[in-house]
Computed example of a mutant assay.
Amino acid sequence: MSRNTLERVLWQLSVERAAKDRFREDPRQFLARFALSEDEVEMVAGFDVAALQRIGVNPMLTMGFWQELSPTRSMKQYKALLGATDEHSAGFSAALKG
């Protein structure tokens, strides 16, 4: 896994307008520029923030990516994907550890 490359991709997608636009148009074409495995492309294109965090990607980058580009941008859904239960949903964390 290329954690450093994934972090660079997520950072770019969180801060660069042109990168966001290219990703929105065709996520896989945008991601083809980077040395990513097919699994990594699937994680990013599928907004699998839990898988990204499991392989060590910085939680603040996954959260920024989610807030900028995910289909719903819902923090409740983001936390649910990370395993938040109803009792944990009231709090806030970029990463939820079980």
Rank of each mutant, 00 (worst) to 15 (best):
M1S: 07
S2V: 02
E7Q: 10
E7M: 07
V9W: 01
L10D: 00
L10P: 00
W11N: 01
W11R: 00
Q12T: 12
L13E: 03
L13F: 02
S14F: 00
S14K: 01
E16M: 11
R17N: 07
A18K: 04
A18S: 13
A19H: 00
K20P: 00
R22F: 07
R22L: 14
R22W: 06
R22T: 05
F23L: 01
F23R: 00
R24W: 09
P27Y: 06
P27V: 05
A32M: 05
R33L: 01
R33E: 10
R33H: 11
R33W: 01
A35Q: 10
L36Q: 11
S37E: 15
S37Y: 06
E38D: 15
E38R: 12
E40W: 04
V41P: 06
E42T: 14
M43T: 04
M43W: 11
V44Y: 01
V44T: 09
A45C: 10
A45F: 08
A45I: 12
F47I: 06
F47S: 05
D48S: 13
V49R: 03
V49C: 12
A50M: 08
A51R: 13
L52S: 03
Q53A: 09
Q53S: 07
Q53N: 07
R54P: 02
R54A: 15
I55R: 14
I55P: 03
G56M: 05
G56N: 05
V57P: 04
V57H: 01
N58Y: 05
P59W: 02
P59K: 06
P59D: 14
L61N: 05
T62V: 14
M63I: 08
M63N: 03
G64Y: 06
F65N: 01
W66T: 04
Q67T: 11
L69F: 06
P71G: 13
P71N: 11
P71H: 14
T72M: 07
R73Y: 15
R73V: 11
M75S: 10
K76Q: 12
K76S: 04
K76D: 11
Y78H: 09
L81K: 12
L81T: 03
G83I: 08
G83M: 10
G83A: 14
G83F: 13
A84T: 02
T85V: 03
T85L: 05
H88I: 04
S89M: 13
A90N: 09
A90V: 15
G91I: 06
G91K: 12
F92T: 06
S93K: 09
A95Y: 09
A95L: 14
L96S: 04
K97C: 05
G98Y: 07
